[in-house]
Amino acid sequence: MSSDNLPGVPEEPIARTGMFGATGTGDTSGYGRLVVRRKPELSTPRPYGGYFDTVADELERALGAELADAVERVVVDRGELTFHVRRERLVEVARTLRDDPALRFELSLGVSGVHYPHLEGEELHAVIHLCSITHNKRLRLEVSCPDADPHIPSTVSVYPTHDWHERETWDFFGIVFDGHPALTRIMMPDDWDGHPQRKDYPLGGIPVEYRGAEIPAPDQRRSYS
């Protein structure tokens, strides 16, 4: 990219190189130097469109000056509104969203985890989908925490339904929800090692103990062919 007549493109972040995601193999298609860049993470500018502006206005009114501190980014994508909330302020934001008469997001659809190993400093995300039955609206809260300090405050006190959802996210991603009444594994056995939905956890390849005997992983078993 040294030539002067090329348009200026951001150097980072790179999503993938090559056309088919192949590495080290002979990609003879001629597209081996193709570089696909990931979009930098930006906040969506106002107006958001639809009812999203109303929700954002009401949240701004309810939180006041705290908003800038609590909400890092607002993203509107594919007809959905996402507030990226700083983890320290999550419980406060959730309580405001639930209790404020103009917001009233009284139904939570649970917590879902996503692991982005390439996002340094915010590898683990917890995604909360909220629904307002009073106003028939939806929004998404996204909270992140670094892998080195996987702690997010628990929102069970605001949405009791998060009890099992947070246990599931802990089980699969290793996010510790501080203040959860009993954060134990829910799907995997209690003595399981590791958190299976993380990207650094392989699919299969784990030996399993059953009634005292160890069953080797599928790729380690004897083959009879």
């Binding site: 999503a15 993938r16 995601g21 696909v36 990931r38 659809l109 649970g110 879902s112 985890g113 996503v114 692991h115 995604v127 989908h129 339904t161 099992w164 959802h165 939905q197």
Partner: peptide, 23 residues
């Protein structure tokens, strides 16, 4: 509910289901 995340590839990056029975 289905929470579907893509990284631009040919495979889902993450799919999570909010199953009503679970809740």
């Amino acid at each position: 509910g289905a929470h579907v995340v893509s990284d631009g590839g040919t495979r889902p990056y993450r799919v999570h289901f909010r199953d009503p029975s679970f809740t």
